[in-house]
Design a protein around this nucleic acid. Structure first.
Length: 321
DNA sequence: TGCCAGGCGGGGT
DNA sequence: ACCCCGCATGGC
């Protein structure tokens, strides 16, 4: 119990229905999400994590937006559409990947799936927590972070958790250790400082891949993988793919390419969609550890398994509540 | 018990 | 340009 904590209450601003055919909002909301933000029927989408604006979205498309500034509602709906990727045209990617030995089945069965983006700060934290750890360990760190910082807002008197503000990290860096992030805590704190003290959010607005990658990599502890994953997850910059040891091995085994040619091959295969393809592979193979993932590929089990018995990108919301 | 895993930087060559 | 190591933590 934190003494004197008063939660800000934000109001209902507007509501409506998202009319987009061919989009599977359930899968879009479910992927890489926690139980406190998605329950199988509806989810909370954080439109602005700093002066909080939140959308409640049900899988049939109905939405309500909560915030403090009623005049901005139309702009918030536009942002919601962008976050959910509702207007992203993936037809070229589908054409390229139709018969792909790795992503073919996923691309066919999950046509309605879209990448749900985060803000750059949280995208970087996600990337850092994946460093040198299993999928499960990384997402447990993220879960611990949200729970321990316990940043909340009241939506019409309903409490909703939010990711910590970078300032929260600078105030209580010790909670990162409690969240079991280990040596990653220093990197997360450095990134938080970049946002608070050096206005990193403004600097990366131009979305030029090389410029953004260079800026992010200038932070100690943020390397090529973390920078690019954050670029995919928060800015839809797909032309510089994040390729970790896991995906690298998978590409080597599946396509029979040499180790030093992996990135070049992946980019040439997926054209400007290579970063999104990287994320798709993790979903298709349920983010299984390498051994098991390679086994799945050999057995041609290239679609997510509904009852895996353990958390996967699509089902982790059922486990982390 | 070590050893390793969806990285990274710092040290060597 | 490489190669190699240590690093928090957790799983096996």
């Amino acid at each position: 119990m934190i003494e004197g904590l008063v939660l800000k209450n934000i109001d209902k601003l507007c509501s409506g229905t998202l009319q987009y055919t061919g989009i599977d909002l359930g899968k879009t909301l479910a992927t890489y999400n926690f139980g406190f933000w998605y329950n199988g029927l509806e989810g909370y989408v954080i439109i602005d994590n700093y002066s909080p604006v939140i959308a409640r979205v049900s899988i049939d498309g109905r939405y309500t937006i909560y915030g403090s500034n009623r005049d901005e509602c139309r702009e918030y709906v536009d942002k919601l559409v962008k976050i959910l990727g509702l207007e992203e045209d993936l037809s070229q990617l589908y054409r390229i990947g139709r018969n792909d030995p790795l992503l073919g089945p996923f691309i066919e069965k999950y046509r309605g799936w879209r990448l749900r983006t985060t803000d750059p700060w949280w995208g970087l934290v996600i990337g850092i927590c994946q460093q040198n750890a299993s999928f499960l360990q990384g997402w447990r760190m993220l879960y611990n972070i949200v729970k321990l910082y316990n940043r909340k807002i009241l939506l019409y008197n309903r409490e909703i958790l939010l990711p910590p503000h970078p300032r929260d990290i600078l105030e209580k860096p010790e909670l990162l250790i409690k969240a079991r992030t280990g040596y990653r805590a220093e990197t997360i704190a450095r990134v938080a400082r970049e946002f608070v003290e050096n206005n990193l959010a403004e600097k990366i607005l131009d979305h030029d891949p090389d410029h953004v990658e260079k800026l992010l990599r200038s932070i100690k502890g943020v390397g090529i993988y973390t920078a690019r994953l954050a670029m995919v997850l928060s800015m839809r910059i797909y032309e510089k793919p994040p390729i970790d040891r896991w995906l690298s091995r998978i590409i080597i085994e599946t396509y029979g390419v040499e180790k030093n040619m992996v990135e070049e091959y992946w980019i040439s295969r997926w054209s400007r969609w290579s970063g999104l393809a990287s994320v798709m592979v993790t979903i298709a193979l349920d983010a299984e550890p390498l051994r098991k993932a390679l086994e799945r590929i050999r057995e041609n089990k290239l679609l997510p398994i509904e009852d895996l018995g353990k958390p996967s990108p699509l089902t982790m919301w059922r486990y982390f509540k």
